[in-house]
Amino acid sequence: MSTDNLPTAAAGPLLPDEYDDALRTRLAALDAASDAHAQDQRPDNTTRSYASDWKTWTAFCETLRIPPTAATRGTLRAFVDFLWSREKRAYATIDRKLAGISVTLRQHHGVVVDPEATKSARELLKDYRRQASENEEPERGRGKAPAMRIDALRQIVEKCSDDIFGVRDRAMLLLGFAIAARRAELAGLRLRNIVEDPDGNGLLVDVRVSKTDPRVVPVPYGKHSATCPVLAWKGWAERAQITDPDRHAFRAIHATGSVQPKGITPQRVGDIITAAGARARIPVLFTGHSVRSGMATEARRAGKDPKAIAQITGHKPNSSVLHGYMQIVDRWDTEDNALMGIGL
């Protein structure tokens, strides 16, 4: 039987070493375009952090007289040792800098850091932290943000004035609490991200600027008008005359009281939250994360399912970070003390 007219087997796909120059150029252009797009989507504070991480890394490499592209197991471990032992940096700061170095090398220099090298550096960092704990050294860094409990939130919003500044701050605090917001999430909200529920149940807040996945949080009307996030938001939107859907939801305000078209920075959000707590004479220094931690803590104490809490915070239900937000706030409460009520 002749095989002359039988179809030949289809050739397999090209392997990378078989690409011609034209294809390599097209792929390189696509990589550059995708990197630029990803950079545009990244929050400004993350971009600034990566720039700071790279600056620290390049300065370190200069002391060793090695190029900054030499992110090997040895150099990354030496970097961890330098930051921990010499500069006394916090654990979280060093961990983030390792991530920032890897991202910058990949995106801007085409260097992919060996995951095993990064892993070994992080293992060394964990060893240093464990040793510090065994030696009873104080924890480095600011630590967890104190949770803003409901009673403190009530006192704080009560002290917010009725002028334009107070109306904005009240809305920011209550809505931030309701959506368990980070600073950047509040700063990143646009008017189009906050809409009324079609059935009149409250607000639907689309949190797009987030370290976790974007989420839509259903915010119901509160039982108390003074702490209702829906009423607070409506009061601010009406008072500030916010109409452009693409403009920031929370704006800068001039000293004269005129609302500015530009939004406020994440740092400014944190400053407003801290100042509001001080104004109410709360004996705790609240930070930008306090409303987020406070919401998770109060929801846990109210017996809410971790899955329901995670839907608001944007975490996975079994996330260790989420459980870290659910702070133990009363050591003598039956809900917070595991020894109480067990039969001792």
Rank of each mutant, 00 (worst) to 15 (best):
F177T: 09
R26P: 04
A99E: 11
R149Y: 10
E185S: 01
R149G: 13
I282N: 04
E139P: 02
L174K: 05
R168S: 12
M326G: 01
T212L: 08
K316G: 11
L125Q: 03
G270D: 07
S120V: 15
R122H: 08
V209N: 05
M295K: 14
N135M: 13
M295L: 14
A240D: 00
Y325F: 05
A338E: 08
A145F: 05
G277W: 06
R239H: 11
T72G: 06
A71D: 06
A278C: 07
I164R: 04
I309W: 00
E335N: 13
H109L: 08
S52F: 15
V291S: 06
W57I: 01
I342S: 01
D95E: 15
P245M: 08
D44S: 11
D162L: 10
P13W: 04
T297W: 04
T93L: 00
A181R: 00
V230M: 07
A78G: 05
H323W: 12
V259T: 07
F79C: 04
R208D: 12
G110K: 03
I156P: 00
L322T: 02
E158H: 13
G294T: 01
V216N: 06
P220W: 06
L322S: 01
K262S: 14
K211I: 08
S293W: 08
G343A: 11
I264M: 14
R183H: 07
V259G: 02
S34D: 13
L83C: 15
E158K: 12
S258G: 08
D151Q: 13
R130C: 07
I164W: 01
I194Y: 07
E185F: 03
L231Y: 09
L98F: 06
V219D: 05
A280P: 05
I242M: 09
V112T: 12
T47E: 04
A338M: 05
T297V: 08
R24F: 04
E134V: 14
L76A: 09
G341T: 09
V269A: 00
P68H: 11
G200D: 13
E139Q: 10
N318D: 14
K159E: 11
A299C: 12
T75D: 06
D169R: 01
E185P: 00
A36C: 03
G314M: 04
Q327G: 06
F60P: 00
T69H: 04
H37P: 00
K97L: 09
D199N: 14
G277Q: 05
D31P: 03
S49A: 15
A299K: 10
V321K: 05
G343Y: 10
D17I: 14
P16R: 05
D95S: 15
A99Y: 13
R26L: 14
D305T: 07
T227W: 01
L173T: 00
L231R: 11
M1C: 11
L64I: 02
F177D: 05
Y19E: 08
R331I: 15
F286D: 02
V321E: 09
I242K: 10
Y221S: 04
I309K: 03
M340V: 14
R251L: 12
D336F: 12
H289A: 01
D95I: 08
L14M: 12
T104M: 13
L191P: 04
A59E: 15
S293F: 14
A152E: 12
L76P: 06
F79W: 03
T75E: 06
R130W: 10
T72I: 10
H323K: 14
A280E: 09
E137I: 11
A92C: 12
T256W: 09
V217P: 02
L322W: 01
G222N: 02
